[in-house]
Write a protein that binds this DNA or RNA. Structure first.
Length: 270
DNA sequence: AAATAATCCTGCGGGC
DNA sequence: TGCCCGCAGGATTATT
């Protein structure tokens, strides 16, 4: 389940091996994922020079100067580097081939996005409404405090609202709230300045720690051709309903918020 | 304006 | 053993 850390680790793992190279071929095996994939995509890519890979939220942007390839991993997507000639497996939808390696996109549930944006310095419409990047200095306790004053919904779904803050998925939302000692059920507007400060810090810490954990195994992640392709830190609360809180021993509780499972310690989180 | 529900899809685990 | 059901997840869209 790629959240921001997995996307960033993929970006860092891929860039040294394919940035600066020229595309030799592109192969598409699926006509649509979450979007209709543009008709001429595989024809226009060969010969283009990949300048850099950027990330915005959970989107990866492959920058060719004259245009960008936009890719979202959805909920089950992964990117790997495989040797040329490696036979594709089920759910391998797209290959971007370079002289000595192939970037292969696999996505069993097909919630991913693959699109092309022609032109220099354009911004894809899917990026227009995205919120703040949580790992930048702009995202602070003060920013979070101001941004949540009019939000009466529980803090957990608010944290996951990509129009407000990008990159925080279901797992890291629960984990960040645990670290900050804040109940996921608490109305966002009823969290004070000081606790917003703690929460912003907890979000940064949780995401950064996960990137660091993945970062140490980037090669394995991007180069492995099997396995879950998922490396999240040991979770303190997520998917631990009924087990003892690591801090106080109270049984972890779970519920559903806005259609998503939420986990928290009723003792440590208020 | 904000909050919620439905939607896309496949794999997997539980229950019978 | 195998089938059915529910659930998992991100983000868009539609609906209150």
């Amino acid at each position: 389940m790629p959240e921001l850390p997995e996307v960033e680790v993929s970006r860092r793992g891929l860039e040294p091996f394919i940035a600066g190279r020229t595309v030799t071929a592109a192969v598409l095996r699926t006509p649509r994922l979450r979007n209709d994939i543009p008709e001429g995509l595989t024809a226009l890519l060969p010969g283009l020079h990949l300048q850099a890979i950027h990330r915005r939220g959970k989107y990866l942007l492959f920058d060719f100067g004259c245009g960008q390839l936009l890719l979202h991993l959805g909920m089950s997507g992964s990117l790997r580097l495989v040797p040329p000639g490696t036979p594709p497996q089920k759910h391998d939808h797209f290959d971007l081939c370079f002289p000595d390696t192939v970037m292969r996109f696999r996505d069993p549930r097909r919630f991913g996005v693959l699109d092309w944006l022609e032109g220099l310095g354009q911004q894809h419409p899917l990026l227009n409404a995205l919120g703040i990047e949580p790992l930048t200095d702009d995202f602070s306790g003060d920013w979070l405090y101001q941004a949540t004053r009019a939000r009466r919904a529980p803090i957990k779904p608010v944290l996951m609202d990509a129009h407000l803050i990008v990159g925080i998925g279901n797992i890291y939302a629960s984990e960040s709230l645990f670290l900050a000692g804040i109940s996921p059920l608490r109305a966002a507007c009823r969290i004070g300045r000081e606790r917003c400060e703690r929460l912003a810090g907890a979000v940064k810490e949780t995401l950064a720690a996960s990137i660091a954990a993945g970062g140490s195994s980037v090669r394995d992640y991007v180069h492995s051709d099997g396995g879950a392709g998922c490396f999240q830190l040991q979770c303190a609360v997520y998917d631990r309903a009924g087990t003892s809180c690591t801090h106080c021993g109270t049984p972890i509780r779970s519920t559903r918020q806005a259609g998503r499972s939420t986990y928290w310690c009723p003792c440590c989180q208020t």
